[in-house]
Amino acid sequence: MGCIEKLKYDVIDKHISFKEAAVYIDKNCPEVYEVKPGFKIFDKAMIGIPPVRIGLDGDVVTFPFTKPCYGTFLLRVSDPAEAELIRKNAKTIKK
């Protein structure tokens, strides 16, 4: 997912499970969305174990990102356009 690696991101946590990522997002993000693996975020298909949660806080997107050799990271990226795409295309869990 080279495009994501070029973004200006913060690593919230690393080597986490998708359940742990979901718990963090549910607790810390005002808006919570749910997607299936393969959902495109920053133009790349998400890898994950359902249910995959994405959190929004204004323009800030919090999401799990899996690399084959390094496991799953929880990343935070500020991107207004991507946040709107998620609001439009993902299933709303909390808003």
Binding site: M46, I49, P50, T66, P68
Partner: peptide
């Protein structure tokens, strides 16, 4: 590893 599990789930 657990990334492999995530790929299988995907």
């Amino acid at each position: 590893n657990n990334a492999g599990v995530a790929y299988a789930a995907t």
